[in-house]
Design a protein around this nucleic acid. Structure first.
Length: 426
RNA sequence: GGAGAGCUGGCUGAGUGGUCGAAAGCGGCGGUCUUGAAAACCGUUGACCCGCGAGGGUCCGGGGGUUCGAAUCCCUCGCUCUCCGCCA
């Protein structure tokens, strides 16, 4: 959510900055709502003031043992007037709030112009695309031929966009997760965190998935209004919702491994093969809660933390700065990490690292107490994948494949697999 | 699942429907004393909204209701705790 003060004071600037990401703000509409609100709020407060004064007078008169009936008659219809004004104001504020909740974040000045991914800007590359002297297979062929990846059985159990893994591949999948968690906790200073995989609507509103993107989520049936988490970002970031963090506990760095559930509505026909786009996948998520002035430095660090996973796995990748129009709703700036996938002969997203500035914090009322002023201030929140485990598995399988269809295990992962060096057919 | 008790400021915890945004204590901050610290003493100390300001308004778990007036009464939802039952 944007700062409503900013919208009031500088509507033109906000409108043009939002236009950079292709969002059209209804300026006259917003202005009209805002004017109405101001009028109604003043009027309501006047009435409240009147009521408070008169009620107090009644109380005092009663304490002195005077007859209060004349005073009561005076305020007879005040209550009705006030009730009406309050109801109208509430209605208007709800409309205004809905409008506000539907406005995306303002792109940071360093974000490149552009409305789609073609305008994204490559920042740097690491490693060279893996060379093979044989025809490469994709992870589906590799996994199926090893007898350790089974999409048909998954379709039987549930439906499309799910996977069953077994044996070495299943273990590799788990080992990658452990490796990432260990790296981020022991070397990058993140605190390992375990959270619920079901969240309520308030949490989803806090991080920006609701109200606009409900169709992307799996919602539970039953007495509770719970949703499956689409990313650990939601439960982890909401840890600081409605909290004023003590300065001693700033900044906060969380790492959290969870499954993620996404309906992938609207992605029909996209990445239908294999593990690239699943309804359920594992992710190790990095979340930071920092002071406003530190958030862009923190974004660079967090991105570097995610890159380190790829470096240790010796997977070639590139770093891309998303243009204004390609960023997610809540982000002020986003870097994507794209890993080299030989079978697709291209780089594919494996991590997305964003600074949300105060956009989520304002929705969540997440603040910290500034010792200099003694006042609570909104925090800045960031998150990034470190990394998406399913896609990392895909990248390892494809980049470490051999001519015979076996897969070499990256050195840093071997300790997590009891010293195994390769995966061969079951 | 059954029965009961709660939810008040950073924390603990008072609060007869009427100058209660809320006693008191702790903690924090500032000061006196001290070479310094501790102790003691004095002072100070919630958040949010509207307004240039003076000032006004809202907030006692969330929402709704009764009333001229609600922390206090009623309804509802959420959460916590205790006992019983069941259980990985």
């Amino acid at each position: 959510m944007l700062d409503s003060q900013l919208l009031r004071k500088d509507l033109d600037a906000v409108t043009s900055q939002l236009a950079r990401r292709g969002f059209q703000l209804d300026k006259p509409g917003f202005q009209a709502l805002e004017d109405q609100r101001r009028q109604l709020q003043t009027r309501t407060q006047e009435l409240q003031n009147q009521r408070n004064k008169q009620s107090k007078a009644i109380g005092q008169a009663k304490a002195r043992g005077e007859d209060i009936q004349p005073l009561r008659d005076e305020v007879a219809d005040l209550g009705d007037q006030l009730k009406q004004a309050e109801a109208k104001l509430r209605e208007l504020q709800a409309v205004l709030n809905d409008t506000l909740m539907g406005i995306p974040n303002i792109p940071h000045e360093s974000v490149p112009d552009g409305l789609d991914e073609s305008a994204n800007v490559e920042i740097r590359r690491w490693g060279d695309p893996t060379q093979f002297d044989f025809a490469v297979k994709d992870h589906v062929d590799l996994g199926t031929q090893l007898g350790q990846m089974d999409f048909e059985t998954a379709a039987k159990l549930t439906g499309s966009r799910f996977a069953v893994m077994s044996n070495g591949i299943a273990r590799l999948h788990r080992a990658l997760t452990q490796f990432m968690l260990d790296l981020h906790t022991t070397e990058h200073g993140y605190v390992e965190t375990y959270v619920p995989y079901l969240v309520n609507a308030d949490s989803l509103r806090g991080t920006g998935q609701l109200p606009k993107f409900e169709e992307d989520l799996f919602k539970l049936q039953g007495e509770h209004e719970y949703y499956l988490i689409p990313t650990a970002e939601v439960p982890v970031t909401n840890i600081v919702r409605d909290v004023i963090i003590d300065d001693d506990y700033m900044p906060r760095k969380y790492v959290c491994h969870t499954p993620c559930f996404r309906s992938e509505a609207g992605s029909y026909g996209k990445d239908t093969r294999g593990m690239i786009r699943q309804h359920q996948f594992e992710k190790v998520e990095l979340v930071r809660v920092v002071r406003a002035e530190d958030s862009y430095q923190a974004l660079e660090e967090l991105t570097a933390n995610a890159e380190e996973v790829l470096k240790r796995l010796k997977l070639p990748y590139r770093l891309v700065a998303l243009c204004a129009g390609d960023m997610g709703f809540s982000a002020a700036k986003t870097y994507d990490l794209e890993v080299w996938l030989p079978a697709q002969d291209t780089y594919r997203e494996i991590s997305s690292c964003s600074n949300f500035e105060s956009f989520q914090a304002r929705r969540m009322k997440a603040r910290w107490r500034n010792p200099d002023t003694g006042k609570p201030e909104l925090v800045h929140t960031l998150n990034g994948s470190g990394l998406a485990v399913g896609r990392t598995l895909v990248a390892v399988m494809e980049n470490y494949q051999r001519a015979d269809g076996s897969i070499e295990i990256p050195e840093v992962i071997r300790p997590y697999m009891g010293g195994m060096t390769e995966i061969k057919p079951s």
